[in-house]
């Protein structure tokens, strides 16, 4: 089944995924497929992330980035494929399964409850409790929320107002704080800087550097390509539900990255790629005919 995806990949850049690798990798996703009715959102994607590694996941709109990450966060159950986390095969049927392993995700649509206050959203699903677990420890919740927000340098003066009343940037900050607060092993950020001001974007990029230095693996989806080169170790390009390229961020130019994203055929990175290039063109034609 993977032959459909193979033409999109550069053989020398995709590191072979073997069982030996799985023991050192934080996470390996193998041949993940997901179909929504007529839409083939994921057509066999293989992705690996090392401990402390920062991956930039890029691609055109509807390439399948968000869907792939939702699979990893347990929010979407794939049709097929396997996930190996810290060397152990896992399968997530709910986001709770993924969260318990230390996978946290900031969703593109933020996924906040507008009617619940800042502290409530930060701790949603893992509220501090008292009275033998029967009651919420509201005071503790606000104290901890204050502490976590300050530690992350997030400017939200009040933790007891509903998040529906916050600005776009503040809401995004709350979503990020929720993901990093509970010491994740893998942090997924789906366009986390879209609504942020310049200074706030810097804070997020610093945050990514800090947590990855502590061994947290990070997958960053963003359209701000210049940011990727500042924080990422590897750049993975998705194209129409497949992983098109897996590049070393330090050895890749912005032009090269752009041409991979738009699936530009003319730019040929090497002679060894001629066959793959042909395959790609062929595949593109069939794609075009299908559409």
């Amino acid at each position: 089944m993977s032959d459909e995806a193979t033409p999109y990949r550069k053989a020398e850049e995709v590191k072979p995924v073997t069982s030996a690798d799985s023991t050192v990798d934080r996470v390996v996703m193998r041949d993940i497929r997901k179909r929504y009715g007529m839409v083939d959102a994921l057509r066999g994607v293989t992705l690996r992330v090392g401990p402390g590694e920062v991956i930039g996941l890029v691609g055109d709109n509807a390439a399948g980035k968000s869907t792939l990450m939702k699979v990893l966060a347990g929010a979407v159950v794939p049709d097929s494929g396997e996930i190996v986390f810290d060397g152990r095969p896992v399968s997530f049927s709910t986001p709770r399964d993924a969260r318990e392993l230390g996978i946290e995700m900031v969703y593109q649509d933020l996924a906040l409850c507008d009617d619940i206050d800042v502290a409530g959203n930060l701790f949603l699903g893992r509220e501090p409790r008292k009275a033998g677990g029967l009651l919420l420890d509201v005071a503790q919740m606000h104290r901890d929320a204050r502490r976590h927000l300050d530690a992350l340098n997030i400017r939200i003066p009040l933790t007891d107002i509903p998040v529906g009343g916050l600005s776009g940037g503040q809401r995004q900050a709350v979503a990020i704080a929720r993901a990093v607060t509970f010491g994740p092993k893998l942090l997924i950020l789906d366009e986390p800087t879209a609504a942020l001001a310049v200074a706030e974007v810097e804070t997020v990029l610093e945050l990514i550097k800090t947590v990855s230095a502590q061994g947290v693996s990070v997958i960053l989806i963003t359209h701000r390509l210049q940011d990727l080169f500042r924080v990422c170790d590897r750049l993975c390009v998705m194209y129409e539900g497949t992983l098109r390229a897996d590049l070393d961020a330090r050895a890749t130019s912005l032009e090269r990255l752009v041409s991979e994203i738009v699936a530009h055929d003319q730019i040929d990175p090497g002679a060894g790629d001629a066959a793959a290039g042909d395959g790609r063109r062929e595949n593109d034609t069939t794609e075009g005919a299908r559409r």
């Binding site: 966060a73 929010a75 709910t94 986001p95 709770r96 969260r99 318990e100 995700m105 969703y107 933020l110 996924a111 906040l112 409850c113 507008d114 009617d115 619940i116 409530g120 949603l124 699903g125 893992r126 509220e127 409790r129 029967l134 009651l135 919420l136 509201v138 929720r178």
Partner: peptide
């Protein structure tokens, strides 16, 4: 107003998918 269940009831009505993604059944 004071229990996790009450919080989830409000969350479910506010944004059910968001609540689900935080791991609540």
């Amino acid at each position: 107003t004071r229990t996790p269940f009450g919080r989830y009831v409000i969350g479910l009505g506010s944004n059910g998918e968001s609540l689900r993604r935080t791991g609540v059944n």
